[in-house]
Lab assay of single mutants.
Amino acid sequence: MADYSSLTVVQLKDLLTKRNLSVGGLKNELVQRLIKDDEESKGESEVSP
């Protein structure tokens, strides 16, 4: 898992935009949104054959 907390808000928003996720909120919220997306993506890849 990436260390999103070391990134700037601009970098976080860029990552969120690329994933089609909301870019609104405080830095901590942006980090949590990326972590949640990582976990959901990981779960999907494990279920797929």
Rank of each mutant, 00 (worst) to 15 (best):
M1F: 15
M1I: 04
M1G: 05
M1R: 05
A2D: 11
A2F: 15
A2W: 14
A2Y: 15
D3N: 14
D3M: 15
D3K: 14
Y4V: 00
Y4W: 01
Y4T: 00
S5D: 12
S5Y: 08
S5K: 09
S6N: 05
S6K: 07
S6V: 06
L7V: 01
L7C: 09
L7E: 04
T8D: 07
T8W: 00
T8C: 05
T8A: 04
T8F: 00
T8S: 10
T8L: 02
V9W: 06
V9H: 09
V10G: 14
Q11L: 03
Q11E: 13
L12V: 05
L12F: 00
K13M: 09
K13Q: 10
D14F: 06
D14I: 07
D14S: 09
D14E: 14
D14V: 08
L15W: 02
L15H: 03
L15P: 01
L16D: 01
L16E: 02
L16N: 02
L16C: 15
T17V: 12
T17M: 14
T17I: 12
K18H: 08
K18I: 05
K18S: 10
K18W: 05
K18M: 12
K18T: 15
R19P: 01
R19T: 02
R19H: 00
R19L: 00
N20F: 00
N20Y: 03
N20G: 13
N20T: 05
N20E: 10
N20M: 09
L21A: 03
L21K: 10
L21E: 04
G24Y: 15
G24P: 04
G24D: 15
G24C: 13
G25V: 01
G25F: 01
G25C: 00
L26Q: 10
L26P: 12
K27Q: 10
K27T: 04
N28S: 15
N28K: 09
N28M: 11
E29N: 04
L30D: 04
L30E: 05
L30Q: 06
L30V: 02
L30R: 05
V31D: 01
Q32S: 11
Q32L: 08
R33L: 02
R33C: 03
R33H: 05
R33D: 02
L34H: 00
L34S: 03
L34N: 00
L34Y: 01
I35W: 09
I35L: 11
I35Q: 11
K36P: 00
K36W: 05
K36F: 04
K36V: 11
D37P: 01
D37I: 03
D37K: 06
D37G: 06
D38Y: 01
D38C: 04
D38H: 04
D38K: 03
D38N: 03
E39W: 10
E39Q: 06
E39M: 14
E40H: 09
E40R: 13
E40N: 09
S41P: 13
S41I: 13
S41K: 12
S41F: 08
K42A: 13
K42Y: 09
K42R: 14
G43D: 13
G43Q: 09
G43N: 13
E44G: 11
E44K: 06
E44P: 08
S45L: 12
S45I: 12
S45N: 05
S45C: 09
E46K: 10
E46G: 15
E46F: 01
E46N: 09
V47W: 10
V47D: 15
V47N: 15
S48D: 11
S48A: 06
S48L: 09
